[in-house]
Simulated assay, not measured.
Amino acid sequence: MEEFLIVDGYNIIGAWPELSKLKDTDLEGARDKLIHMLSEYQSFSGMKVYLVFDAYMVPGLGKKYVQSKLSVLYTKEKETADELIERLVTNLMGRRKQIHVATSDMIEQHVIFGKGALRLPAGELWVKINQSRKEVRARIQPEKSSKKNPFDDKIKGDVRDIFERWRRGQ
């Protein structure tokens, strides 16, 4: 089954304390940090992630680009992020496809749920991303051994005894 995650960018930035605090002084930095986090999550989860930002008051045709294999979309002039998300859900919907939409906007959650997508509140996405980060760290960091001698179980008993006697000066 093919899985998709559509993220309401500014809604998530406003909902996550770390990004919300950053947006007050550096909105572009908060966007970049979210892009980085979601691209890592996309790599780990195998889901295709679309990150939608609202450019409602910005004139133009909208914009789509790929950064770190993550699709980042800006809305067209006079189009809201919710409208773009709903259109994406409609276009992606199909057999053997599961679509999740990450937003804490309750009205939007009801609308996309009615279209057949699954809702994913901002807090749940935060938990999923942090859990995936922990799993990645656990896979790439070597297991810390509590033994003082990491070679102890790799050598034969008689050789270990000889080394032990040498160590003790016998």
Rank of each mutant, 00 (worst) to 15 (best):
G60H: 05
G60S: 09
L61I: 12
L61A: 15
L61M: 15
L61P: 12
G62N: 02
G62C: 07
G62F: 05
K64Q: 15
K64S: 14
K64E: 15
Y65G: 01
V66M: 10
S68W: 11
S68A: 13
K69A: 14
L70V: 03
L70K: 02
S71Y: 10
V72S: 03
Y74L: 14
Y74R: 09
Y74A: 05
T75P: 03
T75R: 08
K76H: 10
E77Q: 12
E77G: 08
K78S: 05
K78C: 00
K78H: 08
E79H: 07
T80H: 04
A81H: 06
D82W: 03
E83Y: 01
E83V: 12
L84S: 03
L84N: 02
L84V: 08
I85L: 04
I85W: 04
E86H: 03
R87Q: 08
R87C: 00
L88E: 00
L88F: 05
T90H: 07
N91V: 06
N91T: 07
N91M: 13
L92V: 06
G94N: 06
R96L: 14
R96T: 10
R96W: 12
R96E: 15
R96N: 15
K97Q: 06
K97W: 00
K97T: 10
K97C: 04
Q98S: 09
Q98A: 04
I99S: 02
I99H: 04
H100G: 02
V101Q: 00
A102S: 09
A102T: 04
A102F: 01
A102K: 03
T103D: 03
T103Q: 04
S104M: 06
S104W: 00
M106R: 12
M106I: 10
M106T: 08
I107S: 11
I107P: 06
I107L: 10
Q109L: 06
H110N: 14
H110M: 13
H110C: 09
V111F: 06
V111H: 07
I112L: 11
F113R: 14
F113S: 15
F113P: 00
G114V: 11
G114D: 12
G114S: 15
G114L: 13
G114Y: 08
K115F: 13
G116D: 02
G116W: 07
G116N: 09
A117L: 04
L118N: 12
L118G: 07
R119S: 09
R119H: 09
L120V: 04
L120W: 08
A122Q: 05
A122N: 06
A122H: 01
E124F: 14
